[in-house]
Design a protein around this nucleic acid. Sequence first.
DNA 1: TGCTAATATTTCGATATCGAATACTTCGCA
DNA 2: TGCGAAGTATTCGATATCGAAATATTAGCA
Lengths: 168, 168
Amino acid sequence: MAKRTPSAQELHRRAVATYVKAGGEESVQRVITAVQGLTKKLDQWYARQLVDLEVTAGEWAVVTSLAKAGEALTPSQLAELTNVAPSSMTHRLDKLAERGLVERTPDAENRTRIYVSLTDAGWQLFSVAIRGSDVVESDVLQDLSDAERGELARLLEVVIARLDDIDA
Amino acid sequence: MAKRTPSAQELHRRAVATYVKAGGEESVQRVITAVQGLTKKLDQWYARQLVDLEVTAGEWAVVTSLAKAGEALTPSQLAELTNVAPSSMTHRLDKLAERGLVERTPDAENRTRIYVSLTDAGWQLFSVAIRGSDVVESDVLQDLSDAERGELARLLEVVIARLDDIDA
DNA sequence: TGCTAATATTTCGATATCGAATACTTCGCA
DNA sequence: TGCGAAGTATTCGATATCGAAATATTAGCA
């Protein structure tokens, strides 16, 4: 039997200690490490759920990107949004189109460009998956009061607003 | 020219709206969406930095997992920690061992098990990369006061503490 | 002890992803 | 208008990843 995998809390504690030791600022590392740990867990849960829907994580990323954008996107934009090489997107879209979840329509005004959009079936898949994941997400925040959730969201949104200034 | 890719802030706003419309709770979605958006941006920045060090994101995940754990780990544990299939870890470790960044040592007490640990070169790579990434991470939190960072960290750590109870 | 189930890693064939090269269109500007 | 530069999607060969099967060891228990 393997040594038990440590708890997320323990992993977090050790990670912060390691980063601080390596020269990172503690207040920074506590936040960054926690954010990444939370995302990793969420990704694991989503992955399980997506197996049932027979969608890969990559395909799901495309569906959510389209849903969240609220408008048609180009393959390049989807590649950027889902952190994948543009050439990989071609194949993903082929598979998704084959299953009738997305639709490619050429741009009449610029014939180098193609717009990708969700079909009705794509939207339906999105809805089903969201209703499933909201449950787990609510559980995650269970220990926070309404006020705390609001404060957490506010602080994170301050950080989000900063992102675009940085990578410019 | 493509339509300008929307700002992270705008993407966040739309994403929350979409999830709420699809039946998610707003206070939950504001937090979850922000956390995921932040991680995505961080991943993009790390990726750029890692190109210079000639390490893939997957390899880097192994190095950091070992550094953060503070002890040797098995291939299975590393696969779990880095969200990858156990069979994929074999090849990753081959490459990392070839480059002298990690070391495989069989467990004397259980001969089905192998312990993977960072070599001195592996630790050195870790230190170099961390010093680079702490800069960008500090920038991200620039708009928060010390008190706010502490509060943000505290709230996230409450959430982290909850994670293990859930997937059991 | 002997046998079955469980654990841990690796191998193997199929598929997905990557980076570079390709094909085509549009833009900028002389 | 014409022509080189830039933008956009795709193709292509090499590599990484996946899930299932194979291999080997250990644990549980009659």
